[in-house]
Amino acid sequence: MITLYDYELSGNCYKIRLLLSILGIKYHSHTVEFYPAAEHKAPWFRQINPLGQLPVLQDDDYTLCDSQAIMVYLASRYDSGNSWYPRDDPQRLGSVSRWLAFADSITNSASSARLVEGFFYDFDAVACRAEAHRLFRILDEHLWFNAKSGHHWIVTGDSPTIADIACFPYIMLSEEGSISRQDYPAIRRWSDHVKRIPGFTVMPGIFPAGPAQ
């Protein structure tokens, strides 16, 4: 049985819910009140994850923290088609790792700006927004060139990978941190593709795709 230590409004938790839904895996959600109770810093939770961060996944007696690591685990273990984490293709696998690290940078910038505005965290919102725009510009260019050669996804290939799931939430929630996506058309087209992946699910602040055109 899989238990996800989860908070509804967390983009990093949503990554895992999204991948679980796409892979069709049943799980139990254990709510940890990130805001306002800061339960992820409570002693009981630090015994599960000493870093005091969400999400944490328990699969029977195996416990794993870090959203990116959890996706690697779930895709490796439960994706029988081997497409979400392409272990058999060294170059694509390398690219997946590269964009997982990129997703962490998005969390540290775009997600932080959102925490300032919505949840009253004390970060430098101006610096966070500037960094997020720098990252969005890099991703937008990357996606634009990919699309030009007929590829929809972050890592070149016929099907999406966990890199797409990793980057998606905090890009889609960026406007809650006053980071507009107006100047990133390739990101907008890519996000519509993500929303049309079978099994796609939403979280508060993220809406489903409109009717197919």
């Binding site: 509804e8 409004l9 805001y35 919505g118 809650e176 979280m203 508060p204 602040g205």
Partner: peptide, 8 residues
């Protein structure tokens, strides 16, 4: 919080 998050 879910309702507020959807309205935001």
């Amino acid at each position: 919080q879910t309702i507020f998050g959807q309205d935001k």
